[in-house]
Simulated scan of single mutants.
Amino acid sequence: MRPVGSITRGTTNPNRLRRVDNYIAYRCGDLLRSSDRPLVVDLGYGATPITAIELRSRLAAAVRSDIAVAGLEIDPVRVAAAQPHADPPLLTFHRGGFELAGLAPDVVRAFNVLRQYDETSVADAWRTMTATGALLIEGTCDELGRIATWAVVTPSGPSSLTLSARLAALDHPATFAERLPKALIHHNVPGSRVYELLTTLGAAWDASATPFGVRQRWLATVDRFRASWPVLDGPARWRRGELTVPWSSVE
């Protein structure tokens, strides 16, 4: 099967995707526990396989010890370089792209991949990656994983948008604008829903200054924000620096 997609830069760092990995364990845990043979695909793991190795370790600890992770890359050189790190059947590496190399995973994580494509490619890529029924977690983050956003995409389309930050490193919610998923980043202009979201969140942050630390400020910010916007999940996720809204609220 010919891989669908293009070779991208492949930049990665250890622990860069820890925020989204923890979210996958939370959001997809029940799905993976109920699967006969749980499989998660790390699409576009990059120049080194560290993100796939970490994903497998985190999900094994938090969800199920027998979860398998398959790392996919279009670049055959990267696939060959990853093979010494494989631990079949629990950790494998394959040449593949959006078609998922013929695999039928329960969950696909595609991070910092579509950011390097034209926006016109996003809808087709989403459809291709979810065609077998997989739940897709697609997004982007900064180089150290301190600021991240991601969409949860079902076979029926996107369902939610999550903003996530290491709160100690968050200077202002406007920072999220630089890391929006490709489907939204060019729509962050006055008059759009995602622009209104970030503007409202920023105003709530500005009004929530407190001497009790950044976590309390973030919790107060979310509380103000949800007075006018639908917010999913609850305080346990908010304390982690997350905020999730329905995708329909930013379309």
Rank of each mutant, 00 (worst) to 15 (best):
I67R: 09
L243G: 03
A236W: 06
S160Y: 10
K182M: 14
T128H: 13
Y26N: 05
A110F: 02
R78D: 04
V122L: 05
Y26I: 13
G46A: 06
D106W: 00
A101F: 05
A169L: 07
D30Y: 01
T120F: 07
M129E: 06
P230E: 10
M129A: 07
G213V: 09
G145Y: 09
G10I: 12
A134G: 00
I74C: 05
S192V: 03
T48Q: 10
R56T: 05
P190D: 03
G46K: 06
A80T: 15
V214P: 04
V194E: 02
A82R: 02
W218G: 05
S34A: 15
D42K: 07
P89N: 01
P173Y: 02
A204N: 03
A203E: 14
F98P: 01
S248V: 14
F212M: 08
S6G: 06
A110Y: 00
R27V: 12
D106S: 12
A80K: 09
L100Q: 01
N112D: 13
E251L: 15
M129Y: 12
I147E: 09
K182S: 07
R27D: 15
S249H: 02
V189N: 04
I53N: 05
A165P: 08
F225V: 07
T140S: 14
A207I: 04
W205D: 01
R2E: 15
